[in-house]
Computed example of a mutant assay.
Amino acid sequence: MTNQPKPLNQITQEAIAILFKEIGIANTVRFLNQFSPGYGNYTEEREEIFKDLSLDEILKRIN
């Protein structure tokens, strides 16, 4: 018996459906997001966001 390889988009759709059924939509999305490279430049954004704050001020905002 020979199995023909499925197209990658079909495999992806089937895998996502299985994940959704087994672990739910929220956890499926969380799982898939770990493979996304994201966007933007966090280093530049961080420097812009915190440029006028001292470390003590940043720590106060965390708590």
Rank of each mutant, 00 (worst) to 15 (best):
L8G: 12
T12K: 14
N41Y: 05
N33V: 01
Q13C: 08
R61Y: 05
L19V: 02
L59A: 14
S54N: 07
K51M: 03
Q10M: 11
I18W: 02
N27G: 03
T2Q: 14
E22S: 11
P37T: 09
S36G: 06
I16K: 05
N63F: 08
F50V: 11
K51G: 03
D56Y: 02
Q10Y: 10
Y42K: 08
K51H: 08
T28P: 00
T12W: 01
N9Q: 13
N27A: 12
E44Y: 09
Y42P: 00
E57A: 10
N27C: 04
R46T: 12
E45W: 06
V29A: 11
A17W: 01
E45I: 14
Y42S: 07
V29I: 15
D52H: 10
F20R: 01
R61W: 05
N33R: 02
F50Y: 15
F35Q: 01
R61D: 08
P7K: 15
L59D: 05
A17F: 09
Q10D: 13
Q10H: 15
S36R: 03
I11C: 13
I23N: 03
I23F: 02
L19Q: 01
F31Y: 05
G38M: 02
F31K: 02
L32G: 04
S54C: 06
N41F: 11
I58T: 07
G40D: 02
P37M: 07
I16S: 00
Q4G: 10
K51A: 12
E45L: 15
G24E: 02
L32S: 10
A15K: 14
G40M: 07
L19N: 02
K21V: 05
K60L: 09
N27Q: 14
P5E: 14
A26R: 07
I23M: 08
L32H: 04
K51D: 03
L59Q: 09
F31N: 03
K6I: 10
I18R: 11
Q13P: 01
V29C: 04
N63C: 08
D52S: 12
K21P: 05
G40N: 03
Q13E: 13
K6A: 15
S54T: 13
T12N: 08
A15C: 14
E45Q: 08
I62W: 09
N3A: 13
